[in-house]
Design a protein around this nucleic acid. Structure first.
Length: 444
RNA sequence: GCGAAUGUGGUGAAGUGGUUAACACACCUGGCUGUGAACCAGGCACGCGUGAGUUCGAUUCUCAUCAUUCGCCCCA
């Protein structure tokens, strides 16, 4: 086939899909425990939504958005992130007036950015995240930050580095912005083209520049911390105290600015280096925003949130061997030995399936040896063999595939036999209803 | 947007300016017509990303193009 997946997209299939499911279930269950509620917002939104929220000066909007005209000449965009859509939904549905605040939402789904694909970077990728809207207490900032930390820990990641910084409140940023403008005024002519644009739209972002010659200049720039208002300092300190109290290790990184324009006050990133020493950079990030809700025509209220890149979390977990326990094994493999036996075996298989056993049947003509091979490949624990002799006797052969022991069982006794086999030596199913026998209920 | 590497079957891959494109794994068939191993005998790329050029002749050389992967920027 010469039709291939679109550049930068990837198929999440089979065992990988199973792993993604586990990751998302873990994230969701903790979000629920923190009393966040799920929001499912559209993949397509008016392009303007992101221009106003994420910001014209951000690379995400400037050059990475998937925008297009629909048949009604509306300029739409595939969402490059979730926050804008969540806030839009919050405002459209007037939740600020009808629900208790802060309104706490979580989300999970695909997002799109037109970038050059490479390690840990896709054009369609998946994010899980949360937003608290209408926050007044910095402890709500800490709540989100802590949730992200708890999730990563629960997934088994031990050496998460939490980097935090504060961008200050409006007056702090205004003062700092002016200071930066003043500092860079004499240097800007020697700096890269990106920085020239940043100088005009958002001088703060110049600090993020990685061009070596520019970096020299950046080193001499004024520091945010010197321009923080006393209120901003106090807020940031409250966060730090809370983190200390909760024994969450962090690093203050005063070069941390974030690429989306709506952040103010607290910003943070979760970094990770795998046990093999591969630095995956930020696997999740977030922060506080004072003006976004108002910017999108809602009341003046602050929000805070973070998001994880599921692909990156997956890579990190895989690299550290934390996904090795995920298997897609089946319970029972049914092997009919004749055309006539296939029918009988099929009815029997259907019965086992409705009883909750993951049962597969071989319906292609195969030699017995091949069927055993297939049973092994699928990880089946039990084999059921049925041939013309068994049909004549009203029995089947039930074989413990690991022990290679078998016995002939009357068809009427089959389910009891199977129940007995899977009942013993295994923990009681967490569903507790005695019906479900699958082994995949971790995280439910 | 910039830079680098790679492109041979189901998979991993070797290879050469010229007759049958190694080898291994997987898979299929038969030996063995009801039991998972092993063994034996066969089968499995009319094709070496695509297009053009050089040449008597190209999978092998040149150019272009596309794709993949990786790095930079930026980001999850």
């Amino acid at each position: 086939m010469d039709i291939k997946n679109v550049k930068g997209t990837h198929d999440i299939i089979l065992e990988e899909a199973k792993a993604y499911d586990k990751i998302e279930m873990t994230m969701k269950s903790f979000a629920e425990a923190f009393c966040f509620s799920e929001f499912r917002t559209p993949v397509i939104e008016p392009s303007e939504l992101f221009q106003r929220s994420v910001g014209e000066s951000s690379d995400v909007v400037r050059k990475e958005m998937y925008t297009f005209l629909d048949k009604g000449d509306r300029l739409l965009a595939l969402r490059p992130e979730f926050t804008a859509g969540i806030v839009r939904s919050f405002v459209n549905n007037k939740l600020y007036a009808t629900r208790d605040l802060p309104l706490k939402a979580y989300y999970s789904g695909p997002v799109f950015r037109y970038e050059r694909p490479q390690q840990g970077r896709y054009r369609q990728f998946h994010q899980f995240g949360v937003e608290s809207l209408g926050v007044e207490n910095v402890l709500n900032d800490v709540e989100s930050l802590f949730l992200g930390y708890v999730i990563l820990t629960a997934l088994g990641l031990e050496n998460v580095t939490l980097k935090i910084n504060t961008l200050g409140d409006a007056s702090s940023r205004e003062a700092y912005r002016n200071a930066l403008k003043g500092y860079f005024e004499s240097h800007i002519k020697d700096m890269c083209d990106d920085c020239k644009v940043r100088y005009e739209v958002n001088p703060l972002r110049i600090l993020d520049c990685k061009v070596p010659s520019d970096h020299e200049i950046v080193l001499g720039a004024p520091k945010m911390s010197d321009y923080l208002s006393s209120e901003a300092k106090a807020k940031f300190n409250k966060v730090l105290i809370a983190l200390d109290e909760m024994n969450i290790p962090y690093e203050i990184d005063d070069t941390l600015v974030r690429g989306l324009d709506y952040y103010s006050e607290l910003v943070f990133e979760y970094h990770y280096t795998s046990k093999k020493g591969v630095n995956y950079g930020a696997i999740g990030a977030g922060g506080h925003y004072d003006n976004l809700v108002e910017e999108l025509d809602g009341p003046k209220m602050a929000g805070v949130g973070f998001s994880f890149g599921i692909e990156r979390v997956y890579s990190v977990l895989k690299d550290d061997g934390l996904l090795d326990d995920i298997v897609d094994d089946i319970d029972i493999y049914v092997m009919p030995l004749s055309e006539k036996a296939k029918n009988q075996a099929f009815y029997l298989t259907s019965g086992l399936r409705t009883s909750g056993y993951k049962t597969e049947i071989n319906l292609v003509d195969s030699k017995m040896a091949n069927m055993f091979k297939k049973a092994d490949r699928r990880g089946a624990k039990l084999g059921i063999i049925i041939g013309d002799d068994e049909i004549a006797n009203g029995t089947v052969i039930v074989k413990d595939l690991a022990k290679k022991e078998q016995e002939e069982v009357a068809i009427d006794d089959l389910l009891d036999k199977v129940d007995a086999f899977f009942g013993e030596g295994q923990d009681e199913c967490c569903c507790g209803d005695g019906e479900c026998h699958c082994h995949d209920h971790e995280g439910e």
